[in-house]
Lab assay of single mutants.
Amino acid sequence: MQRVNMIMAESPGLITICLLGYLLSAECTVFLDHENANKILNRPKRYNSGKLEEFVQGNLERECMEEKCSFEEAREVFENTERTTEFWKQYVDGDQCESNPCLNGGSCKDDINSYECWCPFGFEGKNCELDVTCNIKNGRCEQFCKNSADNKVVCSCTEGYRLAENQKSCEPAVPFPCGRVSVSQTSKLTRAETVFPDVDYVNSTEAETILDNITQSTQSFNDFTRVVGGEDAKPGQFPWQVVLNGKVDAFCGGSIVNEKWIVTAAHCVETGVKITVVAGEHNIEETEHTEQKRNVIRIIPHHNYNAAINKYNHDIALLELDEPLVLNSYVTPICIADKEYTNIFLKFGSGYVSGWGRVFHKGRSALVLQYLRVPLVDRATCLRSTKFTIYNNMFCAGFHEGGRDSCQGDSGGPHVTEVEGTSFLTGIISWGEECAMKGKYGIYTKVSRYVNWIKEKTKLT
Rank of each mutant, 00 (worst) to 15 (best):
T290G: 06
D410F: 07
E320Q: 06
C170E: 01
K274R: 09
F196A: 09
D410G: 06
K260W: 06
H303V: 07
G94R: 12
H302A: 03
V359A: 14
P177F: 00
F78K: 15
M394S: 06
L19Q: 01
D131V: 05
D212F: 11
Y312N: 07
P44I: 12
I256N: 00
C435E: 03
C268K: 01
N48L: 12
F31K: 10
D315K: 00
N113C: 04
G179Q: 00
R364S: 14
W261N: 02
I429K: 14
I112G: 15
C69S: 04
G442Y: 06
A265Y: 01
F221Q: 09
P172L: 04
C69T: 04
D322T: 01
G105A: 13
E434C: 14
V227I: 11
C134K: 03
E159K: 06
I136V: 07
R140F: 07
R404E: 05
A207D: 08
G357W: 08
G58Q: 04
V326L: 11
E79M: 14
I344F: 15
L130H: 12
A164M: 09
F221I: 10
L319R: 00
G246K: 00
T85D: 11
C18E: 01
C97A: 02
E86N: 15
N127L: 15
T225Y: 12
E82W: 04
T186C: 04
V296Y: 01
E171F: 10
E116N: 14
V278A: 05
S365D: 12
D249R: 02
V243A: 13
S182L: 05
F144H: 02
G246A: 11
K260M: 06
T29N: 14
P101C: 02
S423P: 02
N38L: 09
D223R: 10
H400S: 11
Y450M: 01
L103G: 13
T332D: 00
D232V: 07
E116G: 13
G125F: 01
E286I: 10
P101T: 06
V447Q: 00
N80E: 08
E285T: 09
N138R: 13
T461H: 15
E285M: 11
R180W: 04
L372D: 14
I256D: 01
M8G: 08
K260C: 03
V30G: 15
I454Y: 01
E270Q: 08
Q219K: 09
N452E: 07
A250Q: 09
I344V: 09
E124N: 12
V326C: 09
D150T: 13
R379F: 11
K459F: 06
E281C: 10
N147W: 08
T133W: 08
Q216T: 12
K89W: 05
C252I: 01
N42P: 15
S107N: 11
E270V: 05
N147A: 14
D315T: 02
D198Q: 13
N151F: 07
P414E: 03
N283K: 06
F424D: 00
E54C: 04
V56K: 05
V154R: 09
T389V: 08
F87R: 15
E193S: 14
V183N: 11
I275R: 00
P324R: 05
D111S: 11
G94L: 08
N151P: 06
N80P: 12
T84G: 11
V353K: 05
C335S: 00
P175S: 10
F395P: 01
Y115Q: 04
C119H: 01
I344T: 12
I214D: 08
N127Q: 12
V199R: 11
N59R: 09
E61D: 06
G355S: 05
P301S: 08
E72P: 14
P333E: 02
T426V: 00
K446I: 00
E286K: 11
A279Y: 01
L244V: 03
T264M: 02
E67G: 09
H282P: 06
G254I: 00
I428S: 01
V183S: 10
Q241Y: 15
C145R: 01
Q57D: 15
D410T: 10
H415N: 00
K311V: 07
F251R: 04
N147C: 07
E79G: 15
S354V: 14
S107V: 08
G413E: 02
Y352D: 04
D33Y: 04
V77H: 14
I17T: 04
K45F: 04
I428W: 05
I136G: 10
T81A: 10
R226W: 07
T381W: 05
G236A: 06
E61M: 07
L52H: 15
K146M: 10
E288C: 04
Y305A: 02
K293A: 06
L325T: 00
G413Y: 13
V359T: 15
L20K: 01
S70R: 09
V242L: 02
L19E: 01
K459G: 14
F196C: 06
I112R: 15
M437S: 08
P101Q: 05
L321P: 01
E231W: 08
R191L: 12
V416F: 07
I262E: 01
R379E: 08
T381M: 11
E142G: 07
L372M: 11
G403S: 12
G409H: 14
N5D: 07
D110E: 11
T342W: 01
V273Y: 06
L372N: 11
G229N: 06
K459P: 04
C28R: 01
S430K: 03
S448V: 03
V92P: 10
V277C: 03
S187K: 09
G412E: 04
P120A: 12
L244A: 01
N151M: 09
G413M: 14
S255L: 04
F388D: 07
S114A: 10
K311E: 06
C102Q: 00
G106N: 02
G280L: 02
A265D: 01
T445L: 12
W356P: 04
G94N: 09
P301D: 03
R62I: 13
F388E: 10
Q143L: 00
V416K: 00
N151T: 10
E270I: 05
V374W: 05
K440E: 15
E340T: 13
T445G: 02
Q241A: 10
N222F: 12
W88S: 15
G280W: 02
E35K: 08
K188R: 08
G58S: 13
T215H: 05
E320I: 01
K45E: 14
Y91T: 04
K438I: 05
S255F: 01
L369E: 06
E401V: 06
P414H: 09
F388S: 11
C252M: 00
I390S: 12
D198V: 11
K234L: 12
P12G: 14
S430R: 03
W453Y: 02
Q219M: 13
C268N: 00
D111E: 05
G50T: 15
I256K: 00
H314E: 04
H282V: 11
E98F: 13
Y161N: 00
K339S: 15
D212W: 09
E129P: 03
E418H: 10
C102E: 01
E82I: 05
E418Q: 11
K188H: 08
L52N: 15
T264S: 05
N5Q: 12
F399L: 14
L23I: 11
Q241F: 14
Y47I: 11
E420A: 14
V30E: 10
P175N: 07
G58Y: 04
E66A: 07
I454P: 00
H303T: 11
Q216Y: 10
K109D: 06
D405S: 13
V183L: 08
A380H: 09
I210D: 13
G357C: 11
L103Q: 11
A207V: 07
Y201E: 11
G21P: 04
I17V: 07
V195K: 07
L20R: 01
N222V: 07
C119P: 02
C396Y: 01
R358K: 14
C141S: 00
E73L: 06
C178S: 01
L103C: 10
G229I: 13
